[in-house]
Structures are given as C-alpha cells and as structure tokens.
Amino acid sequence: MLASIPAWSQWVARDKRWPPRGPWMWSLEHELPQLYREFNGIDFGHAHIAETLLRTRDSQLVEKARLQVLDFIFSSPPVPPDESQIAPTFVRMVWEVQKTFHWAHTLHRSLYDLFATDDIVDKETAFRAILKNYLKKPEAITYHPLDHHGKLWAWQESKSFAQKYPKFNTQIWAYHWLQAATYDVQLMGGADVQRKLLQRVIEHYHGYLHNPPTEWKFMPMMAEAAPEFSKRFPEAAAIFDNLHMLHDNLDDVLSSPNLYPNLADKRARILRILPIYLHRNHSPQDRYLEYHIPAEIHEMHRETGLRPPSVQEVLELEPQHEFHKQGHHPQTHGSSHGSH
C-alpha cells in the first residue's frame, strides 16, 4: 500500500476548476444531446477500467468490467458520472493525474461547446481564448507533438494493456476515435448539420463498441480521424493526442503488476511519466527532448497496421448498421495518411 511513502510526498492541492466562461457554455448539451450522452458514457469507461485494474488481474473480471461500461454507455446517461465514486482508489492514488485529466476533459468540453453553438461566428478568436486559459494552468498538457509511436510506447510496460486486454483496449481507442471525429463533423456546418451527421458517426462508433476494432495496433490519432480540425487547430490536436497517449500509458502501468506490484510502485511510476506531458516548453536543449517527434520523422508514416478512418470516409459510406455489427469496419492503412 502507500503507507511506506512519506505523507508529505502525497500532499497535493485539489485545484478543481470550472470551465472558462463564454457564450458557448453548455451548447453541447443543448444542441447535440445525443453526443452529450455518449460522452457521459465515455467518462465512465476510463474511470472504471482504472479501478478494475487496481483490483484484479482476472481477465474474466476485466471483461465483465468492459461489458459494464457498454451497459453504461448504452444506458445513454443524462449526466456525467462522478469519477471519484467510480474509481475512488485510483483518484486518491494519483490525484495529480486525475486533475490533469479533468482539466484536459474540460478543454474538450469547452471546444465541443464552442463548435456546437451557432451564436459565435468568430470561432477562431474564441478558440484562442479557451486555449490560452487552458495553458495557463500547471496541469495543462503540452501542445508540442510528442513521440507517441516511439519513445512513449517503448517502455518496459508499454503495450501490456493492449496485449492482455485487446478488446477493452480498442474499445477505449474507439472512444478516442469518436472524440476526435466529432471535431471534423463540427467544422462541416452549424448545429443542425452536426446533429444530422453525428447520427451516422455515432452509429459507426457503436459498431466499434459492439465489435472492438482489435485490428488497430495503435491509438487513433487526431490527424487521422479529424484531419481538418488538426490542420486548423494543431495545438488542440496535439494536446488531445498527448492526453490519449497518457491514458494508454497509465493503463499499461496498471496492467503490469509484475513491474509495479503495489500502489506505491504504481504511483511512483505514473508520477515519473506525468511530467513529460506537463512540461510545456520543450526547447531544443530542454528536458524530455527525447520524447519529441524528431523533425525528420513524420509520425503518421510509421507502420501501425490497419488504421481508423477519417470521419469524412465514414460519412461517405452508405449507412450499413448490420455491416458494423458483423465486425467489419472501414479501415485505411497507416502509411496512407498525412503527417503532423
């Protein structure tokens, strides 16, 4: 347990923050209620797997937890769940990470709100204000593209969650695909257009939930699922890619009890990883330089097997619900996409 760690080293400020205020607030809930409920379900998914992995190594219990997440998502939850009640051990073990997640998820929600409202014409200026507010806080994740496929995926524990629980892992990647894909849909038109298009995107996402895309060998990148958003708002895209990679890193730590057998070991390992993501400047002679994408390497060109489609590709397909249920998903190959 944590008793072996000095109490002072666990002292951490709470620092809970309300989303930045603006005319965009709560637009997602009003304009895109179906998507709002999907995102509430995703919030449950992350917390539940973290707590489950702290409690058990039994693959049947992990599979049971995965199915509980699906039940929760398909219950179309009307309010965001309370993560501190879903994962009380995880949240108190590493509050430092929890507040990083909370703040990044707040950024996600603020941007969905912004792009969901028809009341703001100059979205670019509002985006800059929201991003600036986000980056002011110490728990903000860096907007520098990091080396997800390389250094951040090559630690001793890396890939352990994906290898042990491929269905749960790709189910989580499916959440991230929806979160990314939504942004490009939001750039395609006003709230009416978004509502209409998102029905098909959510249907496609539900196909992934029914049959997790285990053929994916790496998490969906923002530039794959939402190339237009990534081109126009590269800082936000980098933050969300980093956020999703941090989720993967934590799941790897939590599913490696041989390397990190107790809570103190897990906490220590996670707190060694977290600063890489929070370090903001990343100048050439800076700390954690090795975790940057080298300029000559385009991350998306690395061989990562079958890759998730862009939202444009999904929308160009005819609606084929049964097709998804049979476990077939439109794919593209990793080397065919662009780069950062």
Partner: peptide, 12 residues
C-alpha cells in the same frame, strides 16, 4: 479554504 486533496492515506 481547502488545504489539500485527500489521498489513500492523508485526509483532506
């Protein structure tokens, strides 16, 4: 004023 977030061993 809240001084800290509780952890697995420390109260808030």
């Amino acid at each position: 004023y809240n001084f800290n977030q509780e952890t697995l061993t420390l109260p808030a």
